[in-house]
Structure formats: C-alpha cells, structure tokens
Computed example of a mutant assay.
Amino acid sequence: MLQQYKPFLYFLGKFVLSYIILTVVYQSYLNRFDSSKAEVDSFTQIVANQTATVLSWIDNQSYTMAHLKEPSVKLFYKGKYISRIIEGCNGISVIILFIAFTLAFTGKLKNTLIFIFTGTLIIHILNIARIALLCIALYFFPEMEHILHGVIFPLVIYGVIFLLWVVWVNKYSNYASSFAKK
C-alpha cells in the first residue's frame, strides 16, 4: 500500500528537508542582526537600495533612509515617504520556496543549478520591479494599499513562481525525462 505513494512521499520528504535546511540557514543569517537596535539585514538593504535606483530612473527625488525605530528601510518616491521595506519584502522566503520545490523535483545537477540561479535572478528582479511599481501605485492611490500590497502584487510574484515550476517540471526535471520516454 505504501509503495504506491513512494514517489509522492519521496518528493514531499525532499521538499520538506530542503525547505527546513534553507530556512535554518536563512534564519541564522538573520540572527546576526539586532532588530531591537533597528538593524536591517544586508540583503533587505540591498533590495531597498536597488528599488530606489529603479524609482530614480523615473523621479530623481527617490531615495532610501534608515528607519530609526524599527528594522526597516524607508522608501521615498517624489520626495514623499511611501513605504517601508522590511525583511519580508526582500524576496528570500519565496526564493527558498522556489529552490525547495525545484530540488524536490530532481533533475540533472547542471540543469538544477542553472535553473535555480536563473529562477532566483528572475524572482529578485521581479521583486524589485514589484516594490517599485507598488510605490508608484501607492503614491497615486494610497487608499488602494490593501488590494495592491495584499492581493495584486503577491498574485503576480506567486504566479511567476508557479510558471517557473511548471517549466521546471515539464522541461528539466527527471519527471519530464521519464514522461517523455513513455
């Protein structure tokens, strides 16, 4: 009976194990920063700065500033404080999810590494664009914050991750290879 579920249990085990390992590694990285002193992790700072750079292509009064009371970075657009970038905005949690799923659907090592690198880069660039577009939208439509931040932009980023997974499973994973042979 258990034999028929072996492929699913194998997939689930690899997914959970890789997700836990990546999350523990990321958490140990975050533990190096003292949130009680409003310290922001380096990657969140990089994401905030890259977003401000993208916004500055549209408006030269776009910049970041450290938040003195909480671990976040203030983001200004057209000289106005629009949003704060916190650790959850940096995209690492969705990248971890993406990598764990990719590893769970085993593929050739070279393909796996290239796909993880390329997918991570796509997610990162998309995240910067997402934050920049969200800031622009919030500048003009601040009353739409809940739907923009809570619905539309997560739908876009998770939609792209889903599409990346579909490509991985159907073109590069061992599942795709075994399915093509049938």
Rank of each mutant, 00 (worst) to 15 (best):
T53N: 13
Y26V: 02
S56D: 12
S83F: 05
T53C: 07
I116C: 05
F98R: 00
E39Q: 14
A100V: 07
F8Y: 13
F76N: 10
K171T: 08
S42E: 07
L22N: 09
I46A: 11
F8L: 14
I20E: 02
R130I: 13
C89S: 07
F153V: 02
I122K: 04
S93A: 13
V169R: 04
K14L: 10
F76I: 11
I85Q: 00
I20Q: 01
I131C: 07
V16T: 06
I21E: 05
F101R: 01
Y172V: 03
H124Y: 15
T118V: 15
A38S: 04
V169N: 12
A176T: 05
G13H: 01
T51P: 05
A129L: 14
N90A: 01
I85P: 04
I58E: 03
A104V: 01
Y19A: 09
L12G: 11
Q61T: 10
L109M: 09
F105K: 07
T118H: 07
V47Y: 00
F98N: 02
E145H: 10
G107P: 06
C135D: 13
S35H: 09
G91D: 02
L113H: 02
I116G: 03
F105R: 02
T53I: 04
L75P: 03
I136Q: 06
L97K: 07
K74R: 09
P154V: 03
S177R: 15
S178W: 12
N174T: 00
I46T: 15
G79W: 06
